[in-house]
């Protein structure tokens, strides 16, 4: 280690476009402070690449405070890296040591095709939301105040917990089946638990699950890996709830 920080070997997935085959390339980065976030280390790597006349590595990022869900890196074999309950932007370099080799790969899923380098297309999640992740409310000016409807504290808390899902896709990335069940179940649950969401509950769960399957995500086999790697701690309770909702809707719905 130099006096300024760590020297690391990075094995980074490079892919020019969605048509390109792509491959792992190796880069050396020097003087990495343990206080840097992982994305700041990536910035340093890109500065070094640019200085050397090479093309920087493309990666998704936005808020850099664990809220937006943009940063999506599979680091050393784990979604968002070795830490728990954090996104990649919240991962700090103190989790690594001088001389380490770090593999940096994009989310791998048929439903998340690579656009470039480490950037994947997660619009499949958007299409699932469009299929039913909403409530239909007349907003013409006389909308009822949501706070005027009594809601049990437990239900409100569980709905809020489900709503903390930021849609980063770590659940898909880490699941051995590339299943999106944790994401979809969180989005089903956040509405199914509240009175406003119960009206369209049957159509919602049927349509969202149908779209999830159409996108090419795998099926859940209850390994629980998604819950472990989820930066927001979304619980497997949501998957069980969605399974109940789905079975009930399948039996009783007119569809």
């Amino acid at each position: 280690m130099t006096k300024n920080g760590m020297n690391l070997t990075l094995k980074v997935w490079r892919q020019k476009s969605d048509k390109d085959k792509g491959q792992i390339e190796t880069y050396q980065v020097n003087d990495i402070s343990e206080h840097m976030s992982f994305l700041e280390m990536m910035d340093t790597m890109n500065e070094q690449l640019i200085s050397a006349g090479k093309e920087p590595v493309a990666f998704d990022h936005d808020c850099r405070e664990g809220i937006c869900g943009s940063c999506s890196l599979f680091i050393n074999g784990e979604a968002h890296g070795p830490d728990r309950g954090v996104t990649t932007c919240q991962l700090h370099m103190r989790k690594f040591k001088d001389g380490d080799t770090i593999y940096i790969e994009p989310w791998r899923s048929k439903a998340f095709p690579v656009i470039k380098d480490l950037v994947v297309d997660r619009t499949g999640f958007d299409r699932i939301m469009s299929a039913g992740g909403f409530i239909s409310v007349n907003t013409s000016g006389n909308t009822q105040d949501a706070n005027s409807i009594p809601i049990a504290k437990d239900d409100a808390d569980h709905a809020f917990d489900a709503a903390t899902c930021i849609g980063c896709g770590a659940c898909v990335a880490t699941c051995k089946n590339a299943s999106a069940m944790l994401f979809v179940s969180a989005k089903v649950s956040q509405l199914a638990l509240l009175p406003q969401g119960k009206i369209e509950a049957k159509d919602r769960v049927l349509n969202m699950v149908e779209q999830m399957d159409a996108e090419g995500f795998g099926s859940c086999t209850n390994t629980g890996a998604c819950e472990v790697e989820c930066p927001k701690g979304i619980s497997l309770d949501n998957i069980a709830r969605m399974n109940r909702e789905f079975m009930g809707a399948s039996i009783t719905s007119d569809k």
Binding site: W13, G77, E78, Y103, K110
Partner: peptide, 30 residues
Amino acid sequence: RLELLNRSSRPIKYAMEKASENANWMSRNM
């Protein structure tokens, strides 16, 4: 059928994957 469908959901595998960090062997090898 489930295994084949799930395998096809990730056509490109990770170069490094630490599956044992978040799921036990039994659940991953049914």
